[in-house]
Amino acid sequence: MDRALRSRLQARFGLELHGEIRQRNDETELRIGAGDVVDVLRALHDEPAFDFAILADLAGVDTGREMQVVYHLWSQSTNDWLRVIVEGLSRDDPRIASATFLWKGAEWMERETYDMFGIVFEGNRDLRRIYMPPDYTSFPLRKDFYLADDSARSPGAGVRHMERTHSPAEAGEAPLRSGTGT
């Protein structure tokens, strides 16, 4: 675990950060708001002290209460994976700046995230559906989208069993599986 990365990030992005920087296993996690994403990503990519040249992944997350966009970055200068969680996007109209100005390869990842969650990436020149047909209207990976044969909602049957869990995943977050159970 790279303690130095944590203090360097804390010193550089102290104002933008939401909450503490967390470290677990070989991952460092920081949370920012949607307004700061361009500045933070640009600094992480361009500044020689960070040099996060590789965008490993871009994922959307629907927590049930809000939308998040999660970036995983890799740099030569540290032995940790960096996870940048952009939190606090509204579920009704999630909008965030595109990362295509740094990584052109993010274009399709953002298209996928748009297709699955409806998150709009402003600045992406090609934000259309990528997997689902063009006349499709839902966003399948949202938590309020149920599978047709979702046995979670049929009491007493199927693989989802025993309990309805409403455990808060992390402090301050809504119950994650808000839609499940009967």
Binding site: R24, N25, E29, A56, R83, R160, T165, S167, A169, L176
Partner: peptide, 26 residues
């Protein structure tokens, strides 16, 4: 509950998996 990311080197490049657990078995 927590989040984890793992990446491995496959024949085509980097395969990654990002998992979020909420404390249930899924």
């Amino acid at each position: 509950p927590g989040r984890a990311w793992a990446a491995i080197e496959g024949p085509r490049g980097m395969y990654g998996a990002y998992v979020i657990s909420d404390g249930t078995d899924q």
